[in-house]
Amino acid sequence: MHRLPSENSIAQYVIDEEPYYRATGQEVALYEAAYAVRMPMMLKGPTGCGKTRFVEYMAWRLGKPLVTIACHEDMTASDLVGRHLLDAGGTHWSDGPLTLAVRYGAICYLDEVVEARQDTTVVIHPLTDARRVLPLEKKGELVHAHPDFQLVISYNPGYQNIMKDLKQSTRQRFGALDFDWPVREVEIEIVAHESGVSPQIAGMLVSVGEKSRNLKGHGLEEGMSTRMLVYAGQLIAGGVAPAAACSVALVRPLTDDADMRDALEAAVKAFF
């Protein structure tokens, strides 16, 4: 007995409210053009700079459902395409999130795709060229992609690990948008909007963030992200003293190195 999920199950992936997204360049127009030809897209940039928010915003703007899959090391191909499940009546096939998106025309977003093992990610290959099909080997079915389906992946090129990189055969199937920390004024606007602090406080938070980014590769793997700055802002807006908020939301999560923490705390004090 096969129980196919109804089209309704995709409805839960539709985004109803407009997510806040502040464009920093031409990325919205470029993405729309790419979607028009259903080009698979790759979003590159450091963690917490707004990649996920951007996809949510675009899905809302295009009026398409968005299926997000956070990739991890132990993810298998079945986690993407689906598997046979057993129940008292026998076995039945259950579509994985990727298959769901392919069947019913959603935008499928594979977040931090390099975290998944390389043999897992090859299942997306037939979807990302002219064929636009997804073979379900275990089920013996070839799913032709819905006209609305689009594949989007994201990854962080600054992540220093030789083992975790995208294969050329994978990366050449995508168009790419580069994301980076927004320019100062824009980042201030984002931090102020998202956290509710005054632009002046947001400005100081952004300055702290900029200072920490100077240390990337010199003791820090990554500088403070916009997301962290927003967290710090939210704490400040909630009545926490700025220095304490920065310590909790910015310095301590970033590093365990005592000297580095000391230096960062001192850098925070240069503003607050």
Partner: peptide, 13 residues
């Protein structure tokens, strides 16, 4: 020495 190094790099890039 080490933390001063971090400090200056952070402040002045």
């Amino acid at each position: 020495e080490r933390r001063l190094g971090f400090y200056l790099r952070a402040l002045w890039a």
